[in-house]
Design a protein around this nucleic acid. Structure first.
Lengths: 226, 226
DNA sequence: CGAATGATTGAGAACTCTCAAGCTCGGTGG
DNA sequence: CCACCGAGCTTGAGAGTTCTCAATCATTCG
């Protein structure tokens, strides 16, 4: 799920090799306008801002979120290294983006030829990134619409561990419990309780540092996440 | 939000006019493989099916959904005329698709050159459709993660009325309460109660036929939806 | 006109939220 | 080096919303 476009038998919808235009460049080498470093908790852009650029995470973690008028927050995604965010169909950003940890970003200018033009590698990467974002969003709707707090935490921890490619060892959560809550459609307290319960049941272990988690029973977690 | 790619000032990421390859074809004329009519409640494809084709709704309404292993269902979207669905990055469909009402569909074969190749109109339509799907998914995460039952119904009715372009008159809901529930992350009973409550508060009217709704106070509904 | 499916309503249970307190870890300064 | 401090996390108790189970009602279809 974390890998880019699958290449499993069927002709991919978005071909990775344009006939007569084979660029040997790895996708990640597509010309960034410049690189930017943002401090933890710093704003990257706000909803309503002119969407003249989009971003690719080099290191660190970024959150994109929206607010209801009374302040309720929904974090639609955490963006890890390699992820693209901030790409809009319209003229304005529809989200707010902030650094969760200190983060380095590639800033890309949004140009008419970004997809159709001469940079095939970036074009394909953008489309692949959109499809990945859509798949994650759809997966997340399942979580938000139909899963219990316990199941949400299990799903989240499993997915994050896969995306962070952390070996069997402890995984360091980049985000606070509050961030997790606003991503999972819960309150901080419910997140805390569900995490504690998973520990009591032996599915995870919680070292003294609350930002660390060890997945002790991946099978059982997967069963919870379905 | 329902319109295709916005063209508001900024250069669109995905240019609608490819330099040197201007196809005068309207997007909707892009070669369908064939047309198919499905009866109400009939299956169009199932999760795990080989994703060799994708679809565009000509008339009627389609739902795409996923199930948890114990049967809980999440309808990720209702597809109205003009919408594209069933397009996958991988080799298999990740969703089930069924007709909500009788529906006519354009069936498109998924080919390597679908985006990169010679049919620029279809390619751009596909990308636009993906962006639209992503925006709707993100909007829906806000609903599922942070809105009350009442707010979900208000949001749903407003959004649907805009997409169906129904004048101020009564809107005919194509789907059952159960479908609404599984889309909005609620139970049938909660949907029913919230709808009834909106009627008691005068925000909507419910003619005897329970598939009809009149939005009586769009302002108030919009305030609820935020 | 009657059966059947879908919708509504009711009552009680369950889950999550709210409000409030207490705790822990990590950093700070004496 | 240790005690203190603060932000974030956890825990508790009670309230609230939604869910579950069950019955009733309505509309459509045969």
């Amino acid at each position: 799920m974390q890998t880019a476009l699958a290449t499993t038998g069927l002709p991919p919808v978005f071909s990775t090799s344009l006939p007569g235009r084979a660029l040997p460049l790895p996708a990640t080498e597509a010309r960034p306008v410049h690189r930017r470093t943002v401090a933890a908790e710093a704003e990257i852009f706000a909803g309503g801002d002119r969407a003249g650029t989009f971003y690719k995470v080099v290191s660190g973690v970024v959150r994109t979120y929206r607010l209801l008028s009374d302040g309720r927050r929904q974090i639609d995604a955490f963006h890890l290294p390699g992820d693209i965010f901030g790409l809009e169909a319209g003229a304005e950003h529809r989200f707010n983006a902030e650094a969760v940890t200190e983060a380095r970003l590639d800033v890309h200018r949004r140009e008419p030829r970004a997809l159709a033009g001469d940079d095939g590698a970036l074009a394909r990467e953008i489309v692949a990134s959109m499809m990945k974002a859509l798949e994650r969003a759809q997966e997340h709707m399942m979580l938000l619409g139909r899963k219990s707090a316990r199941e949400r935490i299990a799903t989240f921890l499993l997915t994050l561990s896969r995306r962070m490619a952390c070996d069997g060892a402890a995984m360091e959560l980049p985000m606070s419990r509050t961030d997790m809550a606003d991503h999972l459609g819960l309150t901080v307290e419910s997140v805390s309780r569900a995490v504690t319960q998973l520990e009591r049941d032996g599915l995870i272990a919680l070292p003294p540092n609350r930002r660390l988690v060890v997945l002790r029973d991946v099978e059982a977690l997967a069963r919870l996440a379905e």
